[in-house]
């Protein structure tokens, strides 16, 4: 699966953001997107998620090439966009996690919802009011909720902003697991050594252009080929939580 855009154009009344932006993301790829405030990171992800209109260009999704307007419903079906502060609907943690399911399926899929909550470390909190949760817990509910909707791609807008150290580590752990499970991910962030280490690709958005950034400890930009899942799993395992530096690669056969 692949999502992206060709020749994407987007302008606001007093600012031109993109004028011919090209971008592609494949399943299983974890992209770290950085850039200054107002560079267009959020807008780019929202356009790719079918939530914000593009002024021009072609959207790409699983071999299809269409304009944004005709592609938006399909984009919404295959992607999930997570706000910087995820929105919690009025109700319990379970209600929120089960939101992507139709009402008729909620009872039948109860085990799946509870499994997703367990996956995100929220077991035992299913009956709590979602709006009473901390920022980190909200992120975890949002990730569990995204998992339930089974998207091909997940776009996360500064998921670790405003989180304390522990909540940030938990969130990054979950991102790593989602990536290892084959989801295509874009994570926008101002700075995170661990994200830089985990990501397959680090792109910086500035003046409407995407430019590859060097990986930590390396002199130039490198794209880890996603065709090599072992290499990726090794790297995700070896990302050191404290320093954010990659450890020496272990051989999977060892």
């Amino acid at each position: 699966m692949e999502v992206g855009c060709e020749g994407l154009r987007k302008a606001y009344p007093r600012k031109r953001l993109f004028d011919g932006l090209d971008f592609r993301l494949r399943s299983g790829q974890l992209l770290l997107l950085t850039g200054a405030n107002g560079a267009g990171k959020t807008t780019m992800m929202r356009i790719l998620a079918g939530l914000e209109r593009a002024d021009g260009g072609v959207m790409l999704l699983n071999g299809r090439r269409e304009g944004w307007r005709s592609m938006k419903t399909r984009l919404r079906r295959h992607t999930v966009y997570l706000h910087q502060t995820p929105y919690m609907f009025d109700g319990t943690v379970f209600d929120n996690a089960a939101y992507p399911l139709p009402w008729s399926q909620r009872r039948r899929e109860c085990a799946r919802v509870l499994e997703a909550l367990r996956w995100s470390g929220l077991e035992g909190m299913a009956d709590q009011c979602a709006r009473g949760l901390s920022g980190g817990e909200r992120q975890r509910v949002a990730l569990a909720r995204a998992l339930i909707s089974r998207p091909g791609f997940l776009f996360m807008d500064e998921p670790t902003a405003n989180l304390d150290v522990n909540a940030r580590q938990t969130c990054l752990d979950l991102i790593a697991r989602l990536s290892a499970e084959g989801l295509g991910l874009i994570v926008s962030s101002h700075s995170s050594r661990r994200l830089e280490t985990m990501s397959d690709l680090h792109l910086r958005l500035a003046q409407g252009e995407l430019s590859p950034q060097p990986r930590p400890g390396e002199g130039q930009a490198e794209v880890i080929p996603i065709a090599d899942p072992d290499a990726k799993a090794d790297r995700l395992d070896s990302a050191d939580r404290d320093t954010g530096q990659p450890k020496e690669r272990r051989s999977r056969s060892a």
Binding site: G50, V80, P86, Y87, F89, Y99
Partner: peptide, 25 residues
């Protein structure tokens, strides 16, 4: 909160369901 509408849509809700969700909020 406009995020309610966007969250509903991005989680695959139909337009009608998203309207109902926002109305409940």
């Amino acid at each position: 909160d406009r995020r309610a509408w966007e969250t509903a849509l991005t989680l695959g809700a139909s337009r009608l369901r998203a309207v109902v969700s926002v109305t409940r909020e």
